[in-house]
């Protein structure tokens, strides 16, 4: 008798390409084809999740623990990006344009400059988090999209209430879009449909199921991610997009902020959340603490190692 695992899945996760090499018309040294899994995480022949390291262009809004872990870098996004690329060896960089969160923001030229400078400082593919305010979205996303034309960026974040600007920039310049909904399978599905209707091709959408921090809603995120993955594997094409998850959200919670050993705490909580998110189906894991990279890399390599027959 052989005992085998028979999941009964009928479909697979859609593939999305991030980044463009010279051969693909961009300037990145590598591009990634993510998604494509036809089973649960770690089971079968699915790809390893990628680790994205998140930096920002205005550290005032960044957690203290990260500002102190990256002191000399936080005021210099290109240098920070280069460090993430060569020293930390992340797979991707997520540039969060926190400067746009300031009241009466109108430094649009600076946005273009920052994106271009970061693209020059690293040859890794880039995720760009633009503004979070409908009044400036259009201009900000237009600038980001334009600055990264041909680089196949990932632009975020589209939400049900404000997705048109980011979608328009992605369509115009060939980028992908992060679609975020508040921890709910049906809302995730609806938003994907809205994006499609707005003209974003299905293979240029990533689902962000919204990461409740460990201890503050992660239990909901975990279940929602599993459910999205199952729905996709059972054939729901509206949910068959790869997922991006931000364990970095965990850095803002009370336990981490109040910690005596704040760096150790940040790393433990970020890594724990990232490993569980990967097991629930995340394809891109976003972290912020430099100390999280190595342990997370080791864990993922070990989880996804092909079994020796």
């Amino acid at each position: 008798m052989t005992i085998s695992y028979s999941p009964g899945w009928t479909a697979s996760i859609r593939e999305v390409v991030i980044g463009a090499t010279a051969a693909e018309g961009g300037t990145r040294r590598i591009s990634y084809r993510i998604g494509g899994e036809s089973d649960l995480p770690c089971i079968g022949s699915g790809r390893k999740p990628l680790i994205a390291f998140e930096i920002c262009d205005d550290p005032a809004l960044w957690p203290d623990v990260i500002r102190s872990a990256c002191t000399k870098l936080v005021d210099n996004p290109p240098a920070w990006a280069a460090y993430v690329d060569t020293t930390l060896q992340a797979d991707l960089i997520r540039l969060n344009l926190t400067s746009t969160r300031r009241r009466n923001f109108d430094a649009y030229d600076a946005v273009s400059k920052t994106v271009i400078a970061v693209l020059q400082a690293t040859s890794l593919p880039l995720i760009i988090e633009g503004s979070a305010d409908a009044d400036i979205d259009s201009e900000v996303f237009q600038r980001c999209g334009e600055a990264g034309e041909k680089e196949k960026l990932v632009l975020g974040t589209a939400e049900a209430a404000r997705y048109r600007s980011v979608a328009a920039a992605a369509i115009a310049y060939g980028h992908s879009v992060i679609a975020q909904s508040p921890i709910d399978v049906n809302l995730a599905k609806q938003l994907n449909i809205l994006l499609r209707e707005a003209g974003v091709p299905d293979d240029r959408i990533l689902i962000d199921p919204y990461t409740g921090a460990l201890g503050y809603g992660f239990e909901y995120t975990y279940s929602t991610m599993e459910r999205i993955r199952f729905a996709a594997l059972k054939g729901d094409g509206d949910l068959a997009m790869p997922m991006i998850c931000a364990p970095s959200d965990t850095l803002t919670i009370k336990e981490v902020r109040a910690a005596v050993h704040s760096h150790e705490t940040a790393v433990s909580w970020e890594v724990a959340t990232a490993v569980a998110a990967a097991l629930a189906g995340a394809t891109i894991l976003v972290v912020r603490h430099p100390g999280s990279l190595a342990p997370l890399r080791t864990a993922i390599d070990s989880l996804w190692k092909e079994e020796v027959a």
């Binding site: 460990l214 992660f218 910690a259 705490t265 724990a272 959340t273």
Partner: peptide
């Protein structure tokens, strides 16, 4: 200590 805390909270969440 920090790993222990994160693990116990993860267990509680799951």
């Amino acid at each position: 200590r920090t790993e222990m805390q994160a693990a116990l909270v993860m267990r509680q969440n799951i």
